[in-house]
Amino acid sequence: MSAEIVPLRPRDSAPSLAPMMALTASGMNAVNSVILERMQSEIPLIPALAGHLIAGGGKRMRPMLTLAGAALCDYHGTRHHKLAAAVEFIHTATLLHDDVVDGSELRRGKAAANLIFGNPATVLVGDFLFTRSFELMVEDGSLRVLKILSNASSIISEGEVDQLTAARQIETSEEHYLKIIGAKTAALFAAATRIAAVVAEKGDAEERALDSYGRNLGVAFQLVDDAMDYDSDAGEMGKGKGDDFREGKMTLPVILAYARGDEAERAFWRQAIVGHRTSDEDLAHAVSLIAQHDAVSATRERARHYAQRAIDAIAGFPPSEAHAAMVEAAQFAVTRRT
Results as ranks from 00 to 15, higher is better:
135 E>S: 07
28 M>W: 14
30 A>W: 10
260 R>V: 02
282 D>P: 14
273 I>Y: 01
60 R>H: 15
34 V>H: 06
267 A>V: 13
168 R>K: 12
185 T>M: 09
275 G>T: 03
107 R>T: 07
336 R>K: 02
284 A>R: 01
245 F>Y: 11
326 M>Y: 03
142 S>T: 06
181 I>M: 13
324 A>Q: 15
69 G>F: 11
177 Y>V: 02
255 I>D: 09
129 L>G: 08
287 V>N: 09
54 I>H: 00
258 Y>Q: 02
31 V>Y: 08
120 P>Y: 03
124 L>Y: 12
153 S>W: 08
301 E>Q: 12
9 R>V: 08
308 Q>K: 01
231 D>Q: 12
249 K>P: 01
217 L>G: 05
210 L>P: 10
209 A>S: 11
212 S>N: 10
274 V>E: 12
127 D>H: 02
293 H>I: 01
302 R>C: 05
187 A>G: 08
104 S>E: 15
100 V>N: 05
205 A>D: 15
251 T>S: 06
30 A>E: 12
54 I>P: 06
23 L>Q: 12
14 A>H: 09
158 E>L: 00
122 T>F: 04
237 M>N: 14
278 T>K: 11
35 I>V: 15
178 L>K: 10
331 Q>R: 05
52 H>W: 00
170 I>Y: 06
243 D>L: 04
139 E>N: 13
16 S>C: 04
149 L>H: 07
294 D>F: 06
292 Q>M: 13
266 R>L: 12
242 G>Q: 04
206 E>L: 07
252 L>S: 14
57 G>S: 15
180 I>S: 05
314 I>R: 07
264 A>P: 02
327 V>A: 11
117 F>V: 02
307 A>T: 11
290 I>S: 10
41 S>N: 13
105 E>L: 00
327 V>T: 11
201 E>M: 14
50 A>W: 00
229 D>C: 15
247 E>C: 07
127 D>A: 04
155 I>W: 03
50 A>K: 00
284 A>V: 10
228 M>T: 03
73 C>A: 10
332 F>I: 02
306 Y>S: 15
87 V>A: 05
212 S>L: 08
203 G>K: 03
92 T>S: 13
232 S>H: 01
174 E>W: 09
140 D>V: 01
187 A>D: 13
288 S>C: 10
234 A>T: 11
313 A>F: 00
23 L>C: 11
219 V>W: 04
73 C>D: 03
163 Q>T: 00
209 A>I: 07
155 I>N: 03
145 V>G: 06
76 H>W: 04
101 V>E: 09
90 I>M: 09
60 R>M: 14
48 A>F: 00
280 D>L: 04
166 A>W: 05
79 R>K: 07
160 E>S: 13
330 A>V: 00
98 D>C: 09
110 K>F: 01
282 D>C: 09
301 E>Y: 09
5 I>F: 07
56 G>M: 01
285 H>T: 06
66 T>Y: 11
290 I>N: 07
136 L>S: 12
253 P>N: 05
316 G>L: 04
11 R>F: 03
124 L>H: 13
177 Y>S: 09
298 A>G: 09
189 F>S: 11
